[in-house]
Amino acid sequence: MSERSFSEWLRRRCEPEWTSVVTHPFARAITEGTVPDAQMRRYLEQDFQFVDSFTALLGAAVASADTFEARVPYGRFLGQVATTEEKTYFHRALAELGGRTEVPLEPVTAAFRDLMDEVRERQDYLLIAAVLCVAEWCYLGWASRAEEPLPESFVHREWIDLHEGAEFRAWVAFLRGELDRLGAGLDDDLDAGRRAEVLGVFRRAVELERAFFDMAAGRS
């Protein structure tokens, strides 16, 4: 995808925050397998609290997408989240770390869930795609920086694997492609307000990703 694509336009206007997310010390520690158990437990406990809102957001994408070709990948990924590796990973990892699936929400977790719920309730496909793209593209950004050999602990290794590899890259490429397709129809002048609205949601999601890693690292 060219740097002139809409998704790239959005990402570039979120610098340096975007780079701070994908190079965050906590994310790097995951790829190195050096996150202390207590911090990894807190991080995964809070991340699990997104599962319901994230699943609902995928469902909203299926409902609000403007083409059948777009609905299919969302439906497929929705099934994966609900029934396959990621769901079982959380339960196995939290059991290994002595964590829980039901915990009080940290403020940043509540704020991110509120953003997901807000765009879902609006049924605005472009905004839904923007939030989903940030969540997945950011994670590919840090996970793709992992170097071999991956950590021995499955808690770190499988979390990296879930956010890297050909299948996940294709999923992120699809999300970016949807933003690019929809963004191509927005005129720089006539639709400036709409572009700014999408950028505002995209930027809020990036800022929350950064804050979530800061929380996990004990900076908040």
Rank of each mutant, 00 (worst) to 15 (best):
R145P: 10
W9I: 03
A184W: 12
R210L: 15
A93K: 14
D47K: 11
L179Q: 02
R41Y: 07
R13C: 01
Q39E: 13
A65W: 00
G98V: 08
A205E: 03
E167N: 10
A217R: 14
L57E: 02
V21C: 09
I128R: 01
G185D: 12
T19R: 13
V51G: 04
F26K: 12
L186G: 12
M1Y: 11
A146F: 06
Q46V: 08
V134I: 11
E17P: 01
E148N: 07
R42L: 10
M40F: 12
L78S: 06
F202A: 08
W9P: 00
V51C: 06
S20K: 13
L57F: 07
K87E: 12
L140T: 02
E32Y: 02
A29E: 07
V134S: 06
R219E: 11
K87Y: 13
D52S: 11
I160Q: 13
F112V: 00
V22T: 15
E148P: 10
F202D: 04
M215H: 15
T31Y: 06
L94T: 07
D37P: 09
D189I: 14
G141M: 01
R11C: 07
S53R: 14
T34F: 06
G183F: 00
T34G: 10
V155A: 06
G98S: 04
R203A: 10
F6D: 10
P104L: 05
S153Q: 13
T83N: 13
L97P: 02
A217Q: 12
V131D: 01
E45W: 05
E15D: 15
G98A: 10
E152P: 06
V35D: 13
V103F: 05
Y139S: 11
R203Y: 09
L126E: 03
R4P: 00
D52V: 10
F154S: 13
E3I: 01
R204S: 12
V62M: 03
A82L: 14
V206A: 02
H91L: 13
A60S: 15
V198K: 00
A95Y: 08
E148K: 15
M215V: 11
A135I: 01
V206T: 07
E85I: 05
A146C: 13
F213K: 07
Y139R: 01
L44T: 00
E15N: 04
F68T: 09
V155S: 01
R204E: 09
L182P: 01
V201M: 07
T83G: 06
H156F: 07
E118T: 12
A173T: 05
W137P: 00
S2K: 15
A61V: 00
E102F: 05
Q49M: 12
V155L: 02
D188A: 15
T109I: 11
E86T: 10
E45Y: 04
A130K: 06
